[in-house]
Write a protein that binds this DNA or RNA. Structure first.
Length: 408
DNA sequence: TGGCAGTCAATAGA
DNA sequence: TCTATTGACTGCCA
C-alpha cells in the first residue's frame, strides 16, 4: 500500500478500515509455525520490490502478479472483515489506480474507492458465517487467503503463511483493535495513524478519520482475541504480546506487562490520562529500551530505519536512548520518543513491521505535504541489502518540534 | 542569559 | 553495514 493510497483513504474516511487492511501487509512471524519454511524477514521485506515494481507498469491497476500490495489489500480487506474473499475482491477490483505514479514520483492523488461499509460486512459476517468462535473466523480468512493466492499469484509463504497465519494476522489486528479500545479510544487510535506510519504531526486529520468504524470491529475482534488466547502459536502473536493482553481472553481486561503510558506504575489496563492528560503516566524506559533493542535484533531492523520511520529521530539518538535510557521521571520532551517506542511495541508484529514499511511510504507527511520522496525510497525496502539506499536518500526527518504524538 | 534536555550529523569502531 | 560516540545546535525555562 502506498502512502498516497493511505492518504486517499484517510480523506475518504475509511482509514480505520484501510489502515488495518494496510497493516495486514503480509508480515511473517519468524516464530510462527505458519510461516513458510525458509522465509525470513529479509525475504519478506524484499518482497516489497515486487509490489512497487508494479508502478513502473503503465496503468498498473489491481490485477496481476505485480500487484502484491493490492493483493495484500484484497486479502487483507477480506480478512479484516472476517469474511471470505468475494467481498474483498469486489471492494477493489476495478477500482481506479489509486496512485497515479509516473517515473517514480508521486503525482496527484485520486480518491480510493471506499471499502464497503464496515457494519454491513460485520453483519454479513455474523449472519452469513454464523461466527461464534475464532475458528469460524479463521475459516473465513482461509477463504480469503485462497482467493488471495489466486489473485496475487503469490505463494502464501510470501508473508502471510497459509491459512491459519492469516487468521493470525486477523487475530493480531483485531486483538490490537481491542487493545486500543481498552486503552482509550481516540488516543490509542492516534497511534494507528501516528508516526508509526510515518506521520510526525499530531494534527493530521487522519487521527479523527481513523476512528471511524473501529468500534464495530470489537465484536469480531473479541472472537479473534479468544482464538489468539487459546492458539497463540497460530496467531502470530508473540508470547509477550499475549502476555500483554493483546490477545487475551475476550472478556479479560488487557494486562500489559509494560504499563501503558497513562497508567500508574503497573496499573493494569487503566488509563488515567485517556483524555490526553499525562498526569501519572509512567513508562519503564529501561524495559522499553530493552524490548526495542530485542525486537530490532530479532528482525534485523537497523537502528537507523527504526529511528527514522517510527521515532522520527536519528540513529544516534536512538542508539543513545536504547543504551542509556533516562528514568521516566527525569525525561521532559524526551518522553515522546519513548511513548512511540511503547506504542510500537504494543502493536502486533505484523503491524509493527508494516509501520516500518508504511512509514517509509508515508514519510513525506512528515514534511506536511511536501513530497521529498525519491524513486529509490519508493521502490526499495528499508531493510537488509537496500539499507544503504536510505543512507543516501534525503532523510525523512521531522523537525523535533513537529514530532509529537498524542499522549496515550 | 546560562543551564539543561533533546537531538542531529559526522565519524570512529566493530 | 551497523552501532556507539561525540561535538554542536536548538528550544525551553528559571
Amino acid at each position: 500500500m502506498l502512502s498516497s493510497e493511505l492518504v486517499g483513504l484517510e480523506t475518504s474516511g475509511v482509514l480505520s478500515d484501510s489502515a488495518t487492511a494496510a497493516s495486514l501487509h503480509t508480515i511473517p512471524d519468524t516464530h510462527s509455525s505458519s510461516v513458510a519454511p525458509g522465509l525470513n524477514p529479509g525475504d519478506f521485506f524484499n518482497a516489497t520490490d515486487f509490489a512497487v515494481s508494479r508502478h513502473s507498469r503503465p496503468g498498473g491497476g489491481f490485477s496481476g502478479f505485480g500487484g502484491m500490495l493490492e493483493s495484500d489489500f484484497r486479502g487483507a480487506s477480506a480478512a479484516d472483515y472476517g469474511m471470505g474473499s468475494a467481498l474483498g475482491m469486489n471492494s477493489f477490483q476495478g477500482a481506479p489506480s489509486i496512485n497515479s505514479m509516473s517515473s517514480g514520483s508521486y503525482t496527484t492523488l485520486t480518491p480510493l474507492q471506499s471499502l464497503p461499509p464496515i457494519n454491513t460486512v460485520a453483519d454479513k459476517l455474523r449472519h452469513d458465517t454464523n461466527v461464534s468462535t475464532g475458528f469460524s473466523l479463521m475459516n473465513s480468512s482461509n477463504l480469503a487467503m485462497n482467493n488471495y493466492d489466486k489473485l496475487g499469484g503469490m505463494n502464501m509463504g510470501m508473508g502471510v503463511g497459509v491459512g491459519g497465519s492469516m487468521a493470525g494476522s486477523m487475530a493480531g489486528s483485531m486483538a490490537a483493535n481491542s487493545m486500543l479500545n481498552g486503552y482509550g479510544h481516540h488516543q490509542a487510535m492516534a497511534g494507528y495513524g501516528s508516526p508509526h506510519h510515518g506521520t510526525c504531526s499530531p494534527s493530521e486529520p487522519r487521527y479523527a478519520a481513523s476512528m471511524n468504524g473501529y468500534d464495530q470491529f470489537t465484536h469480531n475482534a473479541q472472537h479473534m482475541r479468544g482464538f489468539a488466547h487459546h492458539h497463540p502459536q497460530r496467531t502470530g502473536l508473540t508470547a509477550p504480546m499475549v502476555l500483554n493482553g493483546l490477545s487475551g481472553h475476550p472478556h479479560h481486561a488487557p494486562s500489559p506487562s509494560i504499563p501503558p503510558p497513562g497508567s500508574r506504575g503497573g496499573e493494569r489496563g487503566s488509563v488515567s490520562s485517556r483524555d490526553g492528560g499525562q498526569a501519572g503516566e509512567e513508562i519503564n524506559t529501561k524495559e522499553i529500551a530493552a524490548r526495542v533493542t530485542s525486537e530490532l535484533k530479532r528482525y534485523s531492523i537497523p537502528q537507523a530505519v527504526f529511528a527514522q520511520r517510527v521515532l522520527c529521530r536519528s540513529q544516534g539518538t536512538l542508539s543513545d536512548l536504547l543504551r542509556n535510557p533516562k528514568p521516566w521521571s527525569k525525561l521532559k520532551s524526551g518522553r515522546e520518543t519513548f511513548r512511540r517506542m511503547w506504542k510500537w511495541l504494543q502493536e502486533p508484529e505484523f503491524q509493527r513491521m508494516s509501520a516500518l514499511r508504511l512509514a517509509d511510504q508515508i514519510s513525506p507527511i512528515c514534511h506536511r505535504g511536501i513530497n521529498l520522496m525519491t524513486a529509490d525510497t519508493q521502490i526499495r525496502s528499508p531493510f537488509s541489502k537496500t539499507s544503504a539506499i536510505f543512507a543516501r536518500n534525503p532523510i525523512h526527518r521531522c523537525r523535533p518540534g513537529l514530532a509529537t504524538v498524542d499522549s496515550v
